[in-house]
Design a protein around this nucleic acid. Structure first.
Length: 269
DNA sequence: ATTGTGGCCTGCCCGC
DNA sequence: TGCGGGCAGGCCACAA
């Protein structure tokens, strides 16, 4: 589910979990713990610790542990995959997620709670993820991520695309080059910027690059303000029989960069 | 190195 | 109405 706007909302929600000592760690499915991290180690590091900061790069949420404790300096990384939600003290960061059903507060969805921290004050931080495509990891490699899409400069965007023969959309979604753009936002931005998703990433003229940069910034701002990456202008037409809201042309559905893409063959070139 | 493909998971929707 | 295939906003390992 979540792209940059959702994870940013989660980050703000996670700020409510700072400076509260962790009492318990619960991992309901070991597959949710990624990399070389183990549930045992998570428990050892987190119990007794508290978080000093909640940061975000792209779709990765990072909670810094308070540096004054024995295990200080560690970082807890949380990814949300396509269906992950963050719930702090019973409150969700995002009201609704497409494709992941609705989270009811009556506990009926508790079986999808993959990771839960209990604080000494009785509150909690829970990651809910039915599809199990997200995960938690200790000390994630943040250097593997490109610059965050929110605030990326024109020069950084140029660097991310220059010289590449890969489809433009695939490169935009390459988290190592640019962090935070997912499938929906990529379609939305390319539609707004009048660029076809299968264009070679390195083929953009300076004017096209500036246009893409401007629309990327504006789109991320707008979707964050609207409350989610599924609230783009292209979204309602992103279905069979959908027509371009701008010029009425039948939208094309094709696979680009391994992902389903919807685009207008008339104005996206 | 870069680019493309398949697989991981569960839930929902559409067509029969 | 019931059933099953296809598909879903991500990411990672692997192949060419």
């Amino acid at each position: 589910m979540p792209e940059l706007p959702e994870v940013e909302a989660y980050r703000r929600l996670a700020e409510g979990a700072l400076h509260r000592p962790v009492a318990t760690v619960a991992v309901s499915d070991p597959r949710f713990v990624r990399g070389t991290t183990t549930a045992r180690r998570l428990t050892r590091v987190l119990v007794g610790a508290s978080f000093a900061a909640a940061r975000r790069t792209g779709k990765l949420l990072v909670l810094d542990l308070d540096g004054s404790t024995v295990d200080g300096g560690h970082r807890l990384g949380i990814r949300f995959g396509m269906t992950g939600r963050l719930v702090v003290d019973g409150r969700a960061g995002v009201d609704r997620l497409v494709y992941s059903g609705d989270y009811s507060a009556d506990g009926s969805a508790a079986r999808w709670d993959r990771f839960a921290l209990g604080f000494t004050d009785g509150g909690s931080l829970v990651v809910h993820d039915p599809r199990l495509l997200g995960g938690v990891i200790l000390d994630p490699d943040e250097s593997a991520l490109g610059p965050d899409a929110l605030g990326v400069t024109l020069a950084q965007l140029r660097d991310a695309l220059a010289g590449s023969a890969a489809p433009l959309k695939a490169r935009l979604m390459d988290q190592g080059r640019l962090a935070g753009v997912g499938n929906l936002i990529a379609d939305e931005v390319l539609w707004r910027a009048s660029l076809a998703p299968h264009r070679r990433a390195g083929s953009l003229s300076p004017a096209e690059l500036r246009r893409l940069h401007r629309h990327l910034r504006v789109t991320l701002d707008e979707l964050s303000a609207r409350g989610g990456s599924h609230l783009g202008d292209l979204m309602p037409a992103r279905r069979r029989g959908g027509r371009c809201r701008r010029d009425g042309a039948a939208l094309v559905r094709s696979t680009v960069g391994g992902r389903t893409s919807w685009w207008c063959p008339r104005h996206q070139t």
